[in-house]
């Protein structure tokens, strides 16, 4: 085969392969939604985060507004300290609620922000004071059993 045709075919092959990689990254993967424009960091303390993981989504009214960037255990309070990166476009009042919710019955856990009514907005490094921990199934069952035990008598 002539050298130019060979080179042409190999060129097409390499371009198609790289195109496939880009498709995987953007269309199949989440690289398109990965880097949010500019973010600010907000912290929140939870007594139990359940199955929340880093990179979990932060939503408000169901809209994706940020991601969980870091989860550590604060050894002074013995509570989970969750750092969230929130898109600069979205400002939240200082008395915003942060709840750990579950999408669907068995879905992933995410943080839902419910805005309060205060005038001032959360700034970078602020702490969300009102939080609600994840619902742990064992606790629920435990409470249910505890409550229903006396009724049987």
């Amino acid at each position: 085969m002539e050298r130019t045709t060979l080179d042409l075919w190999v060129g097409i092959f390499v371009v198609a392969g790289l195109g496939a990689l880009v498709t995987l990254a953007l269309k199949v993967g989440n690289l398109g939604t990965y880097n949010m424009s500019e973010t600010y960091q907000v912290e929140a303390y939870f007594s139990n985060i359940g199955g929340l993981k880093a990179q979990a989504s932060v939503k408000s009214s169901g809209v994706l507004v940020g991601r969980v960037s870091n989860i550590t255990l604060d050894t002074e309070r013995y509570e989970a300290k969750v750092t969230m990166s929130i898109d600069k476009r979205y400002q939240f009042p200082q008395d915003t609620f942060a709840n750990i919710l579950t999408s669907g019955l068995l879905g992933e856990q995410y943080i839902g922000l419910v805005p309060g009514g205060e005038e001032g907005f959360l700034k970078s490094g602020d702490v969300v004071k009102k939080t609600q921990s994840a619902v742990v199934l064992e606790d629920l069952i435990g409470k249910f059993l505890f409550n229903s035990a006396p009724e049987k008598k």
Partner: peptide, 19 residues
Amino acid sequence: FWSQMQSNVDFQHDVLNGV
């Protein structure tokens, strides 16, 4: 179909590891 795919396939953890 597409949105579930995009929210569950992580670029670094899934795509890059596959490569």
